[in-house]
Computed example of a mutant assay.
Amino acid sequence: MKTTIVGTTMPVLEITLEAGEQIIAEGGDVSWLTPGFDIETSTGFGSGGKGGFMSGLKRMVGGGQLFLTQYTASGAGGFVAFAAQLPGTIRELTIDPADQFMVQQGSYMASTPHVEVSVGLQTKLGAGIFGGAGVVFQKLAGQGTAWVQLAGEIVEYELQAGQSMLIHPGHLALYRAEMPLEFATIKGIKNKFFGDSLFLAKLSGPGHVWLQSMTPAKLAAAIEPYLPDKSSSSSS
């Protein structure tokens, strides 16, 4: 298996597979591929080999899809490509019992068959900032390789034991699963959603964290003024 990340602002992940090799991804996320792949969809994929309908339900709770798609290369091999959905970057993660990760909802792209994709954290916060869905992270565990898409520019920090950082939840893209995470109301920050307080995530070391400069909510807010007015269109 060979992977190539092509492009800059809107990168594309190309995965070249030898005969019989397999890759798992969310259904409908494929951008292009060579002919001859055996394509199968099931709730059991993305379960780290454990399978079962409950694994699919856990992914749904974590913001993913109930069904995942498995691509198996034919005897001639081939490649499959996945394009990023937001401007940003694609990162490759090695997953094993000592290296498990929490990734923000919507960031998972693809993985090898023995990686488990499940809900890791779901917290209900302010509907104004988070669209009523709260903060959701998926956990990547098991054994293998996974690829995630992170929005905007990425800043990384290595927190030592006893160190912590306060982070706006939308900017918390990826962190190691063993790191303690809690949410706190921070007084003194005026904002239109919470009055005189703001919810921030408190992430504590030791461990590594990836922060993204762009959030989907802020991107949507930035382009919203330029979208057609549906109400005026329907009335006319």
Rank of each mutant, 00 (worst) to 15 (best):
T112M: 13
K124A: 13
G134S: 10
Q143N: 12
A98M: 11
A146S: 11
T123K: 11
I95F: 01
I95M: 00
Y108G: 05
H114A: 14
G142D: 00
A133G: 09
T94E: 15
I90G: 00
Y108E: 11
M109P: 05
V117M: 12
A81G: 03
E92C: 08
G126V: 06
M102H: 02
E92L: 07
Q100Y: 13
L86Y: 15
R91Y: 14
A81R: 04
L125M: 07
E92S: 14
S111G: 03
G131F: 12
Q138I: 05
S107Y: 03
Y108C: 10
R91N: 14
Y108M: 08
L125H: 04
G144S: 14
Q138D: 02
Q143H: 15
V115G: 06
G142M: 01
G131C: 07
G131E: 06
V80A: 14
G132R: 05
D96W: 04
P97R: 11
S118C: 09
F137Q: 09
S118K: 10
T112V: 07
V115Q: 07
F82L: 13
A110C: 10
G144D: 15
T112K: 11
I129E: 14
V119P: 02
G131A: 07
E92G: 12
I129T: 07
A141G: 05
K124R: 13
A83S: 15
K139C: 07
A141M: 00
G120A: 08
L121F: 04
E116W: 11
M102W: 04
V148T: 05
Q122D: 05
V136N: 05
P97M: 04
L86C: 03
G106W: 06
G88C: 04
I129Y: 10
G106R: 06
G78T: 01
Q104C: 08
T123M: 09
Q105M: 11
G126D: 14
D99Q: 14
A110G: 10
F82T: 01
Q104K: 15
G88E: 00
M109S: 02
V117E: 07
V119N: 13
G128R: 07
G88M: 02
Q122P: 04
M102P: 01
S111N: 03
T112Y: 09
S107I: 02
Q105R: 13
A141Q: 03
Q104A: 10
